[in-house]
């Protein structure tokens, strides 16, 4: 499932007392790119909307756990 999560590897100084778990990920939800919501976007049915937490599938951005990938080893995403 294509997630809106992006990864980067921060510079880690040798002096860094607490280096981050690299690579670090950040979420880029749809509304960053969407700006003003267009008209007539496709809609969920009421029950699906209640389950998904939004009326529009286009704006559905669930939390994707980055640490699952990390458990399967760092190399999966560079």
């Amino acid at each position: 499932m294509a997630t809106s999560r992006k990864w980067y590897s921060p510079y880690v100084s040798p002096m860094d007392p607490c280096p981050p778990l690299s690579p670090v990920s950040y979420e880029t939800p749809v509304q960053l790119y969407l700006g003003f919501q267009p008209r007539g976007m496709e809609q969920f049915s009421p029950f699906e909307a209640l389950a998904h937490g939004t009326l529009w599938p286009g704006l559905y951005t669930p939390y994707t756990n980055p640490y699952l990938l990390k458990k399967r080893g760092i190399d999966t995403n560079g």
Partner: peptide, 23 residues
């Protein structure tokens, strides 16, 4: 549940109409 579903769509549509009054 069906009442909650309809009320949730009303919440979403209210917020949508706030920014799209002429839709």
């Amino acid at each position: 549940k069906s009442l909650q579903a309809i009320d949730f769509t009303l919440v979403e549509l209210t917020l949508y109409l706030d920014t799209h009054p002429d839709d």
